[in-house]
Amino acid sequence: MTVKNRREREKEEMRELILSTASDLIAIEGLEKLSIRKIASEIEYAPSVIYHYFKDKEEILNIIMQRGYSKITSAVGNALVEPDSPEEKLKKITREYIEVALSMPDQFLVVQLNGSPEVLKHTGFLFQGASKEKPALATLYECLKELYQDKEVEEDTIELTAQIIAASTLGLIIKLIKEKDISDEQRERLINFYTNEIVLRVVVSIK
């Protein structure tokens, strides 16, 4: 390995250490309390070292949130690749979203429950036209569009339906994370009933 390659690897390792440390701090203390000084203290370096790898705290936050969002978009995107019926795709998209979110509960909650403008740039999806800007919502929108192909449903109605499904799914996820005392069996029953029954009922109710 050349000196240049070794330095590049060490640089990437330090970036990942900073990002993982920041992510852990966010999960424990929340986004508002994250600071360059705290990250530096955790990894036992001077704050100036952090600035050598990142412009500021906002850059670190943006990368962390983009990675978390990418996990969700990748998971729900895979459902559209399968040669299933639109109904089955919708079930898979919903379940994949729930399972990925539950795999990173602390980070998911901290980010989703934060109402700051900077965070909402990543997490907001209720504004008009969101299905054209938010990849995960766009995936859901395309699935619904396929499901409604034989009906005269306006695109605006399809987007509203996607937003309502996304919002209600978010609510279920938050409760599943918060109510830690429910059994694994009950958790699975709730997820199955929601994905197999409730979501489809919302879709079918659209005229």
Rank of each mutant, 00 (worst) to 15 (best):
Thr195Asp: 10
Ile26Val: 11
Lys4Cys: 10
Asn114Phe: 02
Lys11Arg: 15
Pro86Tyr: 08
Thr73Gly: 05
Glu32Thr: 10
Pro83Ala: 01
Ser131Met: 06
Thr157Phe: 03
Ile63Leu: 15
Arg189Met: 13
Gln149Asn: 08
Lys92Pro: 05
Cys143Ala: 15
Cys143Trp: 07
Phe125Thr: 06
Asn5Phe: 10
Ile63Gly: 05
Glu99Val: 04
Glu12Cys: 10
Lys4Asp: 13
Asp184Ala: 11
Ile60Pro: 00
Ala46Ile: 04
Val100Ser: 11
Tyr51Cys: 13
Lys175Asn: 15
Val203Tyr: 01
Thr21Gln: 05
Asn62Gly: 15
Leu120Tyr: 01
Lys175Gln: 15
Glu59Ser: 07
Val3Cys: 02
Gln112Ile: 13
Tyr194Phe: 05
Glu146Trp: 04
Arg189Gly: 12
Arg189Phe: 12
Ala27Ser: 13
Ala162Ile: 03
Thr169Cys: 08
Val202His: 13
Ile206Arg: 10
Leu160Ile: 12
Lys89Trp: 05
Ile191Asp: 09
Tyr69Phe: 14
Lys55His: 15
Gly115Glu: 01
Lys71Tyr: 09
Ala166Ile: 06
Gln186Leu: 15
Ala138Met: 13
Leu172Phe: 07
Ala27Met: 04
Met104Asp: 12
Gly171Lys: 09
Ile36Gln: 02
Leu25Asp: 03
Glu13Asn: 12
Val76Asn: 08
Thr123Ile: 08
Gly129Cys: 02
Leu200Cys: 03
Arg9Val: 13
Leu147Glu: 08
His52Pro: 00
Lys132Tyr: 02
Ile64Gln: 01
Asp150Val: 04
Ala130Gln: 00
Glu142Cys: 12
Leu61Pro: 00
Leu102Gln: 11
Ile98Asp: 03
Ile50Glu: 02
Lys134Ile: 07
Glu179His: 13
Glu16Val: 12
Arg201Asp: 14
Glu44Ile: 06
Tyr45Arg: 15
Val119Glu: 05
Phe125Tyr: 14
Ala136Pro: 03
Arg37Ala: 09
Lys175His: 14
Met14Ile: 09
Ile173Gly: 04
Lys151Thr: 01
Glu159Ala: 11
Thr169Gly: 07
Val100Arg: 10
Gln112Lys: 14
Tyr148Ser: 06
Ser116Glu: 04
Ile63Ser: 10
Ser131Leu: 04
Gly124Trp: 02
Thr73Val: 10
Ile158Thr: 06
Thr2Ile: 08
Tyr53Ala: 02
Ser35Ile: 00
Leu90Tyr: 01
Thr169Asn: 09
Tyr69Leu: 15
Glu185Phe: 11
Lys178Ile: 10
Leu190Asp: 10
Val49Leu: 09
Ile72Met: 03
Ala40Met: 13
Ile206Asn: 07
Pro135Lys: 06
Ile26Tyr: 00
Ile182Met: 11
Gln66Arg: 15
